[in-house]
């Protein structure tokens, strides 16, 4: 249902971050995106909801050409694509509930939301989502009073408010310690298995990939080097993805 065809991105400075990347993702799949830092993972994920404008290729989602969509149509499409970030990207001075409600911005009346008015049903939904990630009691605290793990749960709740068909998670656990990492990954797994939401998740550690992903794609210097089951990443593939001198630790 997501088709990425010959996607390329060259930044203004001349850095070629993506080179002819093509792959497909099926509805309900949990796809891991792996690669060294600087390999183009963030760029790839951001091209899919066009936070970054691709310079070549095509992205088709749900039969709709994302790359050709107008600005307004793009906002319409983004509503159905939740995003989770490495650094959580919460508005730190706002309340937790406000951060979560922000996930509804594409749906609600723009004028009213600008006055911070949301329908009651949305507020109830926000509390439900917070409950689901176990921090309903923190709803009226300021976001920056929460710990890192809690902040990422707010990030997930915000994405879930969009009632997304797909979630793009850009290294969602890279700034968390391993125990917290697993709990966050389990939330994503739950969303994927229970709600049938497609998940594209870039990850650093291969053990996380093995444990949570149905499939993995690997980038190296902007090129697609692997596309298949995580179990198929043998030593040879591993070196191709991570470089000749790399050693497996995970």
């Amino acid at each position: 249902m997501l088709e990425v065809k010959n996607l390329s991105k060259t930044y203004d400075g001349g850095v070629q971050a993506l080179k002819n990347v093509s792959f497909n993702v099926k509805q309900g799949e949990f796809l891991a995106v792996i690669g060294l830092s600087g390999s183009g993972k963030s760029t790839l994920l951001r091209c899919i909801n066009r936070l970054i404008e691709p310079t070549g290729g095509q992205i088709v989602w749900d039969g709709q050409d994302v790359t050709a969509a107008s600005q307004d149509e793009m906002r319409h499409i983004r509503r159905k694509i939740g995003m989770v970030f490495q650094h959580f990207n919460l508005v730190s001075r706002s309340k937790v509930i406000t951060n979560v409600l922000a996930g509804r911005l594409g749906y609600v009346n723009p004028m009213l939301s600008a006055l911070n008015r949301f329908p009651k049903s949305d507020v109830a939904m926000a509390l439900d989502q917070l409950d689901r990630v176990g921090i309903k009691n923190q709803a009226y605290k300021r976001a920056d009073e929460l710990s890192g793990g809690q902040q990422q749960r707010v990030g997930i709740a915000r994405a879930m408010m969009q009632q997304p068909a797909m979630i793009l998670a850009d290294e969602p656990v890279a700034s968390l310690d391993p125990v917290l990492a697993h709990s966050i990954m389990q939330y994503l797994e739950k969303i994927n298995k229970e709600d049938g939401v497609t998940v594209l998740c870039s990850l650093h550690f291969l053990d996380l990939v093995h444990r949570y992903a149905d499939r993995a794609i690997a980038l190296n210097a902007g090129e697609l080097k692997f596309d298949g089951s995580p179990a198929d990443i043998n030593d040879e593939k591993f070196r191709e993805i991570y470089g000749k001198d790399a050693e497996r630790v995970g």
């Binding site: 983004r78 939740g82 508005v91 001075r93 922000a102």
Partner: peptide, 26 residues
């Protein structure tokens, strides 16, 4: 970061300013 996150939800420009910019500049 917050700017990007709010944009990713499908918010329009006014909403992005109200939700991501204003709290940061108060």
């Amino acid at each position: 970061g917050p700017l990007e996150a709010i944009q990713a939800t499908g918010a329009n420009r006014l909403q992005t300013i109200v939700f991501a910019v204003v709290p940061q500049i108060i």
